[in-house]
Amino acid sequence: MEKNDNWKGVFESIFGRKEIVSATLTEIEFIRNKIAHNRKATQSDINIIKSSYTKILNTIGEEKFNSLVLTHISYQY
């Protein structure tokens, strides 16, 4: 995602500010890995995820966020 060709070609139009998205994903990477290896998330982990959700939501806007979620859900089923 952070490679310039990926960022410019796809993600910049969605997220706008690369540094916010990059920092937020870095914050939640440890939690993602923990869960992927069947370890339980702590309340602190949940608080970090909620904060990250809010950052991304505020960065791209609620309408665009919801649109992306709905698009992804429709591809799943």
Rank of each mutant, 00 (worst) to 15 (best):
I48E: 02
S52F: 09
K34S: 10
S22D: 05
N4Q: 08
I60N: 12
I56H: 06
V21P: 00
E2F: 05
E19R: 08
S67L: 15
R32W: 01
K18R: 03
I48Y: 02
N38V: 09
L70R: 12
R39L: 13
S74N: 02
L25R: 02
M1P: 09
Y53N: 10
N66D: 14
M1L: 06
I14Y: 15
T59G: 01
K34Q: 11
G16K: 13
V69P: 02
E2N: 06
I31P: 00
W7V: 03
K55G: 00
I60F: 10
S52Q: 05
E63H: 11
G9C: 13
E29P: 03
T42D: 08
G9F: 11
K34F: 03
H37C: 03
N6L: 15
Y77Q: 00
Y75A: 07
K3W: 09
R17F: 03
Q43M: 13
T24R: 02
Q43E: 13
I73K: 08
N47R: 09
L25T: 02
T24A: 00
K40Q: 02
T54L: 08
G61N: 05
L57F: 08
F11S: 14
D5T: 12
F65N: 01
I49E: 01
N47F: 07
T59Q: 11
I46C: 05
F30C: 06
S67C: 11
T26Q: 09
W7F: 06
S74A: 04
R32C: 00
K40Y: 05
K18I: 02
T71K: 13
V10P: 12
H72I: 08
S67P: 12
E12H: 08
G16W: 05
T42A: 07
D45E: 11
Q43T: 15
